[in-house]
């Protein structure tokens, strides 16, 4: 009994020590700024920036291969935060700040094909095969991918209606200089 316990404990401790040493020698130096920029991005891996996900996008941002404005769901706020983090200038050009939008399913046209469900990167669309789908507005980040795959064009992007709960002052337009 004692031999069994002792030998297994010793074995475990030995292997643990070897792995600990190996972890020290084989450590991969990640770029800490990349991780910080990735944390600023929405993290929904929607791919609208043209990169496979938020991590490759963050890597490209740090290398200076992509403009800080690359993230459509993040909008102006994310672009400015990234520019500040990386110390680069950001130009929005004539680009107006987009109104907040949300996907909307026209229930008369929805055939319940579930194609939009599979496309949604935030799982904001509820539905099942041959059931009418609907959008959970709080989760939708308006990437518009569902509207592209819909075979009956029943999904449209609508501006979030200004109600007492959603209306807020327009943000002051600030030019960010380098």
């Amino acid at each position: 009994m004692l031999i069994a316990i002792g030998s297994l404990t010793l074995l475990g401790a030995l292997l643990g020590a070897v792995l600990g040493v190996a972890a020290r020698y084989l450590r991969v130096e990640g770029n800490p700024i990349e991780a910080e920029v990735e944390a600023l991005l929405p993290g929904s891996q929607c791919g609208q920036c043209g990169f496979a996900g938020c991590k490759p996008a963050a890597a490209a941002l740090v290398k200076g291969e992509a403009p800080p404005t690359l993230c459509p769901p993040g909008g102006r706020a994310v672009a400015m935060a990234i520019a500040e983090k990386l110390g680069v200038s950001v130009s929005f050009g004539d680009q107006e700040e987009l109104e907040p939008e949300v996907a909307f399913v026209n229930e008369d046209l929805c055939i319940g094909c579930t194609r939009c469900l599979k496309e949604c990167s935030t799982d904001a669309i509820v539905g099942a095969a041959k059931q009418i789908h609907t959008v959970i507005a709080e989760v939708c980040h308006a990437c518009g991918k569902c509207a592209k795959v819909c075979p009956t064009d029943c999904i449209e992007m609508r501006a979030v209606p200004a109600t007492l709960a959603t209306w807020h002052w327009k943000k002051p337009r600030v030019k960010v200089a380098s």
Partner: peptide, 15 residues
Amino acid sequence: LAIAAVVQFTEMAIR
């Protein structure tokens, strides 16, 4: 136990 340790090591090496 031994296999798990070897796999962990391989993972670190490949990474």
